[in-house]
């Protein structure tokens, strides 16, 4: 009975192994097929920002998603175009992004309506599909004016486009945010909308810490506008409160590099007290030794005398 059972068990295990053997290569082969046929479509995030200095920044980030997890397309070639003109080919960094800064003096091809069409192209590879992303914007200019009258500070903004002949065309009903540039992000301090002449102003109120001189970077920003994208303009003004960070090192000395003086003094007093006694005792021991040597010498002499006497 027992034998039968174990025999059945063995047969069962062997058949299972054979089955597994048969299935295994087929399974992995089908896996490989899948790999070849299935191409992943990447995500290409493409943004446009006009900087306060007039330059334009184009940034693109390429990534793909597997199992709801995002993986960057590191070190891939990203092509930047404006209309049909190629601006350049950049290699993405480890995070999958690449940034291109266009100097203000660069002439960019516009279409008949004065729109700039920026395109970013990823050519794709064996397993990733080709992707393209584009932004169409018009070149917006923001001019900031700062005034200070009777201790009332105000910021006024002029939003306009440049015409063919260099004439200014005001932009009406443009929502604008006023901000202070901070270490990581911008702190919003007010907003407004431009009038038909393209003007918008705001009173600067409130207390905002600046650097040691009170300088803050005041910024007007058009955010994600359908026509103009992201546009920033700003200037450093002495409108903030001067700050003077108190060094944390004076507050408590326990964690500083050098110990508090009372501690050093106490330690020195205690150590000198104790070690002075040690040295004194060691000196005493050496006195014993000196005396012992004298005695030994005397003994030797007396022995020699004894011998001589004999």
């Amino acid at each position: 009975m027992k034998f039968l059972l174990s025999a059945m068990k063995t047969i069962y295990i062997i058949s299972a192994m054979v089955l597994a053997f048969l299935v295994w290569p087929g399974f992995s082969a089908s896996g490989q097929d899948k790999e070849k046929t299935e191409k992943h479509s990447p995500i290409l995030a493409f943004t446009y920002l006009k900087n306060p200095d007039g330059s334009k920044t184009l940034s693109a980030t390429a990534s793909f998603i597997i199992n709801r997890q995002i993986f960057p397309l590191s070190y891939c070639k990203l092509k930047f175009y404006c209309g049909e003109q190629e601006l350049g080919i950049l290699t993405s960094d480890k995070q999958g992004s690449a940034k291109l800064i266009i100097q203000p003096a660069v002439k960019l091809p516009k279409d008949e309506k004065g729109t700039l069409l920026f395109r970013n192209v990823y050519e794709g590879c064996d397993s990733v599909e080709k992707t393209e992303s584009s932004i169409s914007v018009r070149d917006l200019n923001l001019l900031l004016k700062f005034s200070e009258k009777d201790s009332i500070k105000s910021i006024s903004l002029h939003a306009f486009e440049l015409g063919e002949k260099g004439d200014t065309l005001p932009v009406n009903e443009l929502p604008v945010n006023f901000m202070i540039k901070r270490m990581f992000t911008n702190l919003k301090i007010g907003d407004g909308t431009t009038d038909p002449k393209g003007y918008c102003s705001m009173d600067f109120k409130g207390v905002f810490p600046g650097d040691s001189l009170g300088n803050i970077f005041l910024l007007a920003r058009v955010d994600d506008n359908d026509d103009y994208g992201n546009v920033e303009s700003g200037e450093i003004k002495k409108w903030g409160v001067p700050t003077n960070p108190v060094s944390p090192f004076v507050k408590r000395e326990l964690w500083t590099e050098i110990a508090p003086i009372w501690m050093i003094v106490t330690l020195i007093i205690m150590l000198t007290g104790v070690w002075a006694h040690y040295l004194y005792v060691v000196f005493n021991i050496s006195r014993i030794r000196r005396e012992g040597k004298k005695i030994e010498k005397l003994k030797e002499i007396s022995q020699v005398e004894k011998l001589e006497a004999v």
């Binding site: 950049l90 290699t91 960094d93 480890k94 800064i101």
Partner: peptide, 9 residues
Amino acid sequence: DPGSNIKVL
């Protein structure tokens, strides 16, 4: 890593 550089036109 070329990402440590920024391209300027």
